[in-house]
Structures are given as structure tokens and as C-alpha cells.
């Protein structure tokens, strides 16, 4: 943990004070939802007849698998975006490179989440196997 004197002004520069409690709560909500959805995901994989393409695609065609999978993607990528941002805010002190890192994190996490969501939709809405 960095407990130097830059910590307080650095945190203040990132978010207005009234947003801090909301941000804190959101982090914890997303931690819980990511954890629960991952338990569902890993148990589901374990129950599949195999991890071949057909078994996985067949499973994700079911809305009862596709919808929690979409929720898992949103929850997980939101959670990891907030987490990586905290790491950057704590360790990258120079304003320019901090901004650049935050832009990269935001872009890549949204891009990766977009790829994952599109893939799930493609499988779930696709007509052939």
C-alpha cells in the first residue's frame, strides 16, 4: 500500500468526493456478482459432456446459459476495469502517463468485452451448429 502524502490529492483528482462512496459500493457489488457468476460458469463447464466446440456451442444456444454468460462478461470486465484503474492510480504518478494508461485500460476492457458479447450473441442467435 502506498501511504505517502500524495495519496489524498491523487484520489481527489480522480473522482469528486460524492462519487467515492458510490464507487466503493459498485466495486463490492461487482466483486460479489463476478464471484457468483464464476461459480455458475465453472460448475456449468464441469457438467458439460465435453469441452469440444459442439458441446460448448450447444450449451450457449440455451438462453438460460447465454443470458448469465452475458451478465458474467459485463460483471467481470467492469470489475477488472475498475481494478486495473485503481492499480494505475496508485502506482503511475505522472499525470500524462496516468491518463494514457487509463485510456488504454478503458479501451481494451471495452473492446474485449465487446468481442465476448458479440461471440455469445453469435452462438446464441446462430441458426446452424
Amino acid at each position: 500500500m502506498t501511504t505517502d502524502t500524495t495519496a489524498a490529492p491523487a484520489a481527489a483528482a480522480v473522482a469528486p468526493a460524492e462519487d467515492a462512496a458510490h464507487h466503493w459500493g459498485l466495486e463490492r457489488m461487482l466483486s460479489v456478482s463476478t464471484l457468483l457468476l464464476f461459480v455458475w460458469f465453472l460448475v456449468s463447464l464441469w457438467r458439460l459432456p465435453g469441452l469440444d466446440q459442439q458441446s460448448v456451442a450447444e450449451w450457449l444456444k440455451n438462453p438460460l446459459a447465454a443470458v448469465p454468460m452475458l451478465l458474467l462478461v459485463v460483471s467481470t470486465f467492469w470489475h477488472l476495469k475498475l481494478g486495473l484503474a485503481v492499480v494505475v492510480e496508485d502506482y503511475v504518478h505522472e499525470a500524462g502517463s496516468r491518463f494514457a494508461w487509463l485510456v488504454v485500460i478503458n479501451f481494451l476492457s471495452l473492446f474485449a468485452a465487446g468481442l465476448a458479447i458479440l461471440s455469445v450473441l453469435k452462438i446464441a442467435l446462430g441458426s446452424s451448429a
Binding site: A112, V120, I123
Partner: peptide, 13 residues
């Protein structure tokens, strides 16, 4: 982890 996960989903699709 996230990279492998996305690659896996894109590969299934």
C-alpha cells in the same frame, strides 16, 4: 485470464 477467456469465446463462435 481475460485474454484466454475472450479467445475461447471467439473460437467457439
Amino acid at each position: 485470464g481475460a485474454g484466454v477467456f475472450v479467445w475461447w469465446l471467439v473460437a467457439v463462435a
